[in-house]
Amino acid sequence: MNLTSSSSISSNNHCGTTTHSGPGLFEIQISDQSLQFTPKVIDDPVLTGSQILSIANARPASDFLLFQILRDGALEMVRPEQTVDLRNAGTEKFLVFRSDRSFRFFLDERAFDWGASYISGATIKRLAGMPSETTEVWLDAAGGHDRVIDDNEMVDLASPGTERFVTRTIQITIKVNSRDRVVDHRVLTYWEVVKLAYPEAVPSDQIIYSIDYASGPHQNPNGSLVDTQSVTVKEGMKFYVTPTDKS
Rank of each mutant, 00 (worst) to 15 (best):
R79E: 12
Y118M: 06
L66A: 02
V187R: 14
L127M: 13
S230G: 00
A214K: 15
E133T: 08
R79H: 09
Q29F: 10
N222C: 04
T228I: 09
D63Q: 13
R147L: 09
D150Q: 15
S178M: 12
T169N: 12
S204M: 07
V183W: 13
L95C: 03
L70T: 08
Q171W: 03
Q229P: 04
Q82Y: 07
N152A: 11
L53K: 11
G73R: 12
S7V: 05
L75H: 00
V84Q: 06
G90P: 05
V194E: 01
L196T: 03
R79S: 10
D140M: 13
T18P: 04
V183L: 08
L127I: 13
F103I: 01
T189K: 12
L3V: 07
S10E: 10
Q206D: 11
F37N: 01
F239A: 00
G73K: 11
Q68S: 06
I42W: 10
V84R: 06
S159M: 09
S117M: 11
F26A: 01
D212S: 10
N2H: 11
T244M: 10
S178H: 15
D140Y: 13
S34K: 12
E92W: 07
I52C: 03
F112M: 12
A74V: 01
F37S: 00
T232G: 05
S132L: 14
G90H: 06
S120K: 05
A158M: 04
V137A: 03
L95V: 06
T123V: 15
